[in-house]
Write a protein that binds this DNA or RNA. Sequence first.
DNA 1: AACTGTTACGAACTTCGTAACAATA
DNA 2: TATTGTTACGAAGTTCGTAACAGTT
Lengths: 86, 86
Amino acid sequence: MELRQLRYFVAVAETGNISTAAMKIFLTQPALSRQIKALETEIGQCLLERRAHSVHLTPVGEGLLREARELLQHVDQVLDRVRGAG
Amino acid sequence: MELRQLRYFVAVAETGNISTAAMKIFLTQPALSRQIKALETEIGQCLLERRAHSVHLTPVGEGLLREARELLQHVDQVLDRVRGAG
DNA sequence: AACTGTTACGAACTTCGTAACAATA
DNA sequence: TATTGTTACGAAGTTCGTAACAGTT
């Protein structure tokens, strides 16, 4: 699991739509779609219900969204602390 | 900052020696040396004092070691929870 | 001389973007 | 038909290993 994938997933979850999320993070739809799928494969769980004009988080996806946000905040904390330690 | 780099850094910190750490994680010395240096560059802080037959953590490095361990535990927690959520 | 870490360069791997496709309103 | 997500394939970027180097005991 890579931090990049978690950041991508959060973007999709917040947008509810892969295309728009891809634009927000300066990526193309296919690249984003692939990374989300890779994350699902590694976790072994379905994170999104693919619908016609949007994607909807599964319960597992909702859980991961909360966890991912906390984890990414944690990463930022670490960076801030270490950079400030100089 | 990548999780991979944090894992590499923890390995070096625990071993006190890049060569041995590299073997433990099935990597070569140059690859490990580069990634540690890249981490230092990104953080903007020196993490290791390079000595003759070993490396020694700077105070900043000691701090990052604690933070990195916590963060990597956090990552494992997230994976366990999400995988168990199925 | 034997051990450490670093730098240079080409190979392997991963991710990316474009193009073509499938599905739904 | 217009919008969405997915799959295929070659290009770009990153990491890796080998080789050559520099420093310390």
